[in-house]
Each structure stands twice: as C-alpha cells, then as structure tokens.
Simulated scan of single mutants.
Amino acid sequence: MSKILVTGADLAPQALELLRGHEVVFAGKAPTEEGIVALCAEHNPVAIIVRYSKVGAAAMDAAPALRVVSKHGSGTDTIDKLAAKERDIEVVAAAGANAAAVAEQALALMLACAKSVVSLDARMHGGHWDKATHKSLELNGRTVGLVGLGAIGLRFARMADALGMRVIGFDPFAKDLPDYVEKVEMPDIWRESDVISLHCPLTEGNRQMVNAQTLSETRRGVILVNTARGGLIDEDALLAAVRSGQVMSAGLDSFAVEPMVAGHPFQGEKGFVLSPHIGGVTSDAYVNMGVAAARNALAVLAKQRAPA
C-alpha cells in the first residue's frame, strides 16, 4: 500500500476517508524540516499533504516515489516549487477552502483596530470607564485597500462593502471583479487607503512590500491588517510606523518567524492586535482544507496512473 505523509498530527475524518486506499503517516504536532526529510526516507510517500513546516528539495530527494505535494490551505510558499518542478512533482493547493474563515479573521482584526476592542476590554477589566475620553474610528465611508483579490480578498471585499466602505484593490491577475471593487495600482493603495488589508501570496517579488518607504506613502493613521504571510511586512519598519502614529493600529495574524517567540518587539506594544496565524483555523475550514488537499493529491495520482 502506497503511503501519504501529512506534515501535522491529524487530518479531518472526511479527508482520511478519501485516503483510505493509502497508508497515512503523520509527522506530529510540530514537525521540523529535518524530521520531514527523515520520514520521507523511511516511508517513501507518493504524496505529501503539507500542514506545517517546509517541504524542500531534501525531502523530495528522500522520497523517490513522491509525485505530488498538496497544501492543506492556499499558501504554497513553504513548498520549494522550483525543486518540485525540476523533479516532475506537482504542487497543488486547496484554493478557497478557507476563504470564509480567513476573511472573517481579517474583518475581526480590522474592527478590533478601528474600535479599540482589545485596549478598551483591558481598561474595563481594570475598573475604568473611558466613555468621556475615547473615540473610535467609524469605517463607514472610509476606503479599504486590498492587496490580492482572490477568494479571500473578494470575500473580505464583500463584507467591507456591506459596512459602507469604498473598496479598492490591486491584483494583476484579477478579472471580472464585482462592481463594488475598484481595481487600482499599488501606489493608489498606499496613497488612498484608510485601511490596508493583505490577501496575496508571498513571492520574492513582494517580500517586505510593506516597508519604511511604502509606509511613509500612506495616510497618517492608517490601519494595516495582515492575514496572509508575515514575510510581506518589514516588521522593524512597521514597529517604527506604529510608534510614530503613521500607522494607527496593526492587526496581524501572520509573522516573519512562526511561532512567535517570547520577547518579540510586538508583544506588549500599544497599537498591535495579534493572533497566532489562526485565520484559517475553524472547524469548517479544517474539514474543507483537509478534503480539498486529499482530493487534489488523489487527482494528481490518478492522472499520473492513467494510460496515455
């Protein structure tokens, strides 16, 4: 029986049912890249379903039977796609499977920033009543700029439109956009947005796209939301921008290095609302991503087995 390696400790029962014709091997709750290489060498899987950690050339070389690397989610930046292409290994992703969950997290972070939810909660629990001194930001009529107009970005756009916000977006690949999304270029995102929300994959071309220069081009007091990839942001530049007031607040669900370790400069800093990369972690998304990842892997394997 051929084997499928899951770089995590579990998979939705519905996904496991789809994979019943294969032996499924789990890498554990916190797999390392080296550990994945070792498991590939031990089990020689035909497919890897990627939940955590990275899958690079060494893992691929350790598993000569490997034919497909399937992401349990939409972002494939943890997979060495060039190495996979060189070895005739397909890389597939569960695009859209967690779109609702991540878009809702982006909305929650935007609202938490605009309405000072976290700081007011802490003040209330401390016995304070700040009604006479506090003013929140009203989002109705404000402009939100979206970087990335895929399944997640467009779902978030629909919610922002429902709040009465003007929605502008940049995505060189987006077509047939709804009439409430105005397609613009990146300079317009920096210049015109009251809120900027990132919904794009991480590439070498956009790494640290949010940096000291681009942050200086935004409106003073902008809100930044990131539920995509931490590598999109120069974290030192963002910290300086929040401290100076150029960025009013940042709602972040992803970070340059994960998991975040104790002593990270964002911790305890005013102006940051943080969550541990759980935007796509809901019970529904868990099932959707697992099923999609399993189906994608099986589709590639079936295609490669089919006679020419």
Rank of each mutant, 00 (worst) to 15 (best):
K3G: 12
E17N: 10
R20E: 14
R20Q: 14
E23S: 13
K29C: 09
K29L: 11
C40G: 06
H43K: 13
P45A: 10
V46M: 03
V46F: 06
A47W: 04
Y52K: 15
S53K: 14
K54T: 14
G56K: 03
A58G: 12
A65W: 05
A65R: 12
V69Y: 03
H72R: 08
T78V: 13
I79N: 05
E86Q: 10
I89T: 02
A93G: 04
A93Q: 06
A99D: 05
A103S: 07
E104I: 07
L107N: 08
A114I: 08
K115C: 05
V117I: 10
M124Q: 08
G126M: 04
H134P: 05
T143W: 01
G145Q: 09
L146W: 05
G148M: 08
L149W: 03
I152D: 00
G153D: 07
G153N: 07
L154F: 13
F156E: 15
D161E: 12
A162C: 03
V167C: 09
A174T: 11
K175T: 13
L177N: 03
P187G: 08
P187A: 15
V195D: 05
R207D: 05
N211V: 03
A212H: 14
Q213M: 14
Q213H: 09
E217G: 11
V222A: 13
I223F: 12
R229F: 06
D234K: 01
D236L: 11
L239V: 15
A240T: 05
V242K: 04
A250C: 00
A250V: 05
D253E: 00
D253S: 04
A256D: 13
A256H: 11
M260R: 06
M260D: 01
V261I: 11
G263N: 10
P265E: 00
H277S: 07
V281D: 07
T282G: 02
T282Q: 03
A285M: 01
G290E: 01
A292V: 04
A293C: 00
A302E: 11
R305V: 10
